[in-house]
Design a protein around this nucleic acid. Structure first.
Lengths: 285, 285
DNA sequence: TAATTCTTGTAATAAAACTACATTATCAGG
DNA sequence: CCTGATAATGTAGTTTTATTACAAGAATTA
């Protein structure tokens, strides 16, 4: 994690600084944003120290020099403002909370992007390609994700369905064949029904792929687990962003699927696309 | 547009640049991180232009000069948004296309964040609060979005339903009352059935809110239109990201709704949350 | 094709950052 | 409470970096 915030590091080590270093630190803390725009000379004056003291201060914090320090400081300001203090407040207006919600979603997506296991993704794509049938299972919010997945994978010339009814799921799981893939989506990975149904499918010899949180019960019992690391939501106003991450991962899987089929597969996709044309008003109307 | 990402601005204005400016842009885009660490001289060499050309490039993008440019560039790199000129190639492996898909989604989300009309969002929240009933309509992919919306708004102690069956939609629209809100989701805003149904609802005096693309037929006939600006997808391998933006906007609307209800409403949400507890395995298991 | 405007580079200047070294402060042991 | 050692800080000079003014060249238009 190279993303440790420089401003935090400085404030943590405040006590272990000597006099002039401390003066520099204070001057920066007073207005970090201004510090990123000032020269070493002006900051030295502001802190009442010499220029080399500022320079030494920078090097003390593992930066190449003052310019590099400013860049890292600037970066830490962005993450500080955007991600650390990004909870929705009860007196926020639309102008305030709208970017907060977008930013928090974006933040979670980039986290998932950086932590997802490519090996597992690859393996899941392989299993999907080998599948003779794919069932997408999900309840509640994950039901909407499963539905979206059905819509996406349906285009692939493959028997695909989604289910959000636990009785249907149970029946399908118990009559599953080894060539069937059950793709189970669950944010928590702790919903009892879903776990039980997945166990049944595994017992019957079907492939069960889970899209869920790391270390969950569901994750441990299925054939392959695509673990998605989205931080728990502490803010009651904030929405659940894991479902968005799940959707993007399904996009990734669909892309992997398409690529593996080779270029002639694209014409099939084009056919499906154009089948919808008559339902739409033309562009120039 | 206060926090439009510098890197995005550059990539948007790529076409309007002259030759040497373009060379500089390309050199930066190739490795923005490296650009933040290089001197004006080394970047000039990398771009095969003179140093003043680099300087002029910086000023063109409303920065004080090269150092200021580097700071702003560094900031734009942090926000989780990466520059994505990268379409999925047919010979991409999982390692390649996974971040591409995430980045392109993130990119689109930040575009929507910066272009969404807060006034309209506010007005939509008002209408939703005044509603006695809310119907979410959507077909295909937007059906999954509508389903997610139902799940979210259901928690608000309000008669809410989602529909993806055009006959049901038609019947509901024609029996709609003025206190009913029809929330119609459509990526294209050109699906004939959806437009017809919306027209019926408008004629009956109901409020019709559309979540769709700017300037579409649907947008022009409904009561209020939440226009979402997501660039058209030219890459056949790339997924449709508008639905993700739609989901986030529904999160925004739900948040606005919750905030407007005041703090005592949170206990109601807590009640719903805890009602699901018995369906889950406990954490320590 | 000549005049105009827009681009781009050269060279000089200014600004900023860094380094070596000198000075001053701090502190431990006598 | 000295005195020598060590650490902290500053001065001044050097190097690097960025900017500016201006001129040459390319593109454009009448």
């Amino acid at each position: 994690m190279q993303h440790q915030n420089l401003l935090m590091i400085i404030s943590n080590e405040l006590d272990s600084l000597n006099k002039s270093e401390r003066k520099v630190a204070d001057a920066i803390m007073l207005d970090p944003e201004a510090a990123t725009h000032s020269s070493i000379a002006s900051l030295a004056i502001k802190a009442s120290v010499s220029e080399p003291s500022v320079n030494r201060f920078c090097k003390r914090f593992n930066t190449a020099g003052f310019p590099d320090f400013k860049i890292k400081l600037a970066k830490s300001l962005v993450s500080g403002v955007r991600f650390v203090n990004q909870n929705v407040d009860s007196d926020d207006t639309v102008e305030h909370f709208t970017p907060k919600i977008f930013d928090s979603t974006i933040n979670d997506l980039s986290l998932v992007r950086d932590t997802i296991d490519h090996g597992v993704v690859n393996e899941v794509v392989n299993r999907l390609i080998d599948a003779e049938r794919i069932y997408f299972f999900g309840l509640g919010t994950s039901g909407a994700v499963a539905r979206d997945a059905e819509n996406k994978f349906f285009r692939f010339n493959l028997p695909v369905s989604f289910h959000d009814d636990v009785l249907m799921m149970r029946m399908l799981a118990s009559t599953g064949r080894s060539s069937d893939v059950f793709f189970v989506i669950s944010h928590t990975g702790r919903t009892k029904e879903v776990i039980e149904i997945s166990e049944i499918a595994v017992d019957k010899g079907s492939t069960v792929i889970a899209l869920t949180s790391p270390g969950s019960p569901l994750s441990s019992i299925c054939s392959i687990s695509l673990e998605v690391n989205v931080p728990e939501n502490t803010d009651e106003y904030m929405a659940m962003t894991s479902r968005i991450a799940h959707l993007v991962i399904l996009d990734v899987l669909a892309t992997g699927f398409t690529l593996r089929q080779g270029p002639d597969f694209l014409s099939h996709l084009e056919k499906i696309k154009s089948s919808l044309k008559p339902t739409r008003l033309s562009k120039d109307k």
